[in-house]
């Protein structure tokens, strides 16, 4: 369950250089943290869109993406640290 994290929790601070990419996953385990794309702010949505369409890493510092979590967009994508 995802109860430890709050819906209001602010993004964690990460080094400027950290990057993440989105890895398509076929299914989601019961202990995964999952967020729908509409839970993200405009900038993170931009980053998700770029990461998926251009298949390239995005800077974690500019976004609200947590490594390990799964994003529901046009498919299910796991956030992976690069």
């Amino acid at each position: 369950m995802n109860m430890a994290t709050s819906e209001l929790q602010s993004r964690s601070v990460r080094p400027e250089s950290a990057a993440v990419r989105l890895e398509r996953v076929p299914s989601v385990p019961a202990d995964a943290t999952v967020r729908h794309v509409d839970q993200f702010e405009t900038e993170t949505l931009d980053a998700i869109y770029r990461a998926v369409t251009e298949d390239r890493p995005v800077s974690a510092a500019e976004t609200d993406l947590e490594p390990g979590e799964v994003i529901v967009f046009t498919d299910y994508f796991r956030v992976e640290r690069v």
Partner: peptide, 24 residues
């Protein structure tokens, strides 16, 4: 509180129940 915008993924048969819960 649970994630109302993810319940459709459960109904689709794709997402298990647990990640949809937000608060216990």
């Amino acid at each position: 509180l649970y994630n109302r915008i993810l319940i459709k993924e459960h109904a689709k048969g794709k997402l298990p129940e647990a990640p949809i819960s937000i608060h216990d």
